[in-house]
Nucleic acid binder design. Structure first.
Lengths: 138, 138
DNA sequence: TCTTGAGCCTCTAGTGACTAGAGGCATTAC
DNA sequence: GTAATGCCTCTAGTCACTAGAGGCTCAAGA
């Protein structure tokens, strides 16, 4: 049995975040000491590690809830899990696509300005003022 | 002179968002009719288009504030503008890098599960539970 | 056993950039 | 004149936390 601070260190998740996960129902409320402090065991650490790993991969709290729900029913089909991962993958790919377009445009804009001129003639400011100067869709 | 609804249509920015920009000081408070409704002119539209364009490129409100401030001083050096763009570019690149790592890992995880098994043996759930199964840094 | 200091508790409010909704007044077109 | 549409302010909600205040608990050393 260990304290929330200990759990925090082991799972590398900040204390307020742990309490937040408990509040929103991701993490089961653990036992308490007589003085009302939380005490966790190995299963708490395991669950929190699962959550952290999924968050690191960009899954939403909602998606993680569904995955945890599924974990609790070992006999259920894992189709939902597969769907969640696939949908997260397409989220990630969409974001990458958009960011690559932004990258291109930002490179182009920054090349137009050496930072040595004066605001009035600045290509950066002109580019932002006028979308028509853009070369790529974004 | 046109109403906020008209401005919204022309700049393709939602009405509450326009009011929000005014509230945080990005957009100057426009004239009002006797009945207290906002009335904009061409310069309002220009400014809002600038803001929208910068937001579409992922600049923060704070960064846009600085850019607008600079616009108001045509004689000032545009070094700050250049810096803002370069820093935004490195933000974008960092995000892309991270997302590409996630993409790889998600592809790998999703390949391990055909969605036809049972939750207990699901590779998706196992992967999330155990970071050691990961092949790529993320 | 007592004390000290680190650790824990709850609660509220703040972050960024909006978005939604309620309740009510203004404008415009017919 | 009236009806429909549009606009006003204000509050609260979104997501996933983060920060801080004020106060209680625990564990280790004297």
């Amino acid at each position: 049995m260990f304290s929330i601070g200990e759990l925090s260190k082991r799972a590398k998740v900040k204390i307020p975040t742990i309490r937040y996960y408990e509040e929103v129902g991701l993490l089961a409320a653990p036992e308490r000491t007589e003085g009302n402090q939380r005490r966790y065991d190995a299963s708490g650490l395991e669950r929190l590690s699962f959550i952290k790993h999924a968050r690191d991969l960009g899954f939403s709290i909602e998606a993680i809830s569904q995955l945890i729900e599924l974990q609790g029913h070992p006999d259920r089909s894992c189709q939902v899990a597969k769907e969640i991962v696939v949908s997260q993958l397409s989220n990630v790919r969409a974001k990458i696509k958009r960011l690559r377009a932004l990258e291109k445009e930002l490179v182009r804009i920054s090349k137009g300005c050496d930072g040595e001129g004066v605001s009035e003639e600045c290509y950066v400011l002109a580019s932002l003022a006028d979308h028509l100067l853009c070369r790529y869709e974004h």
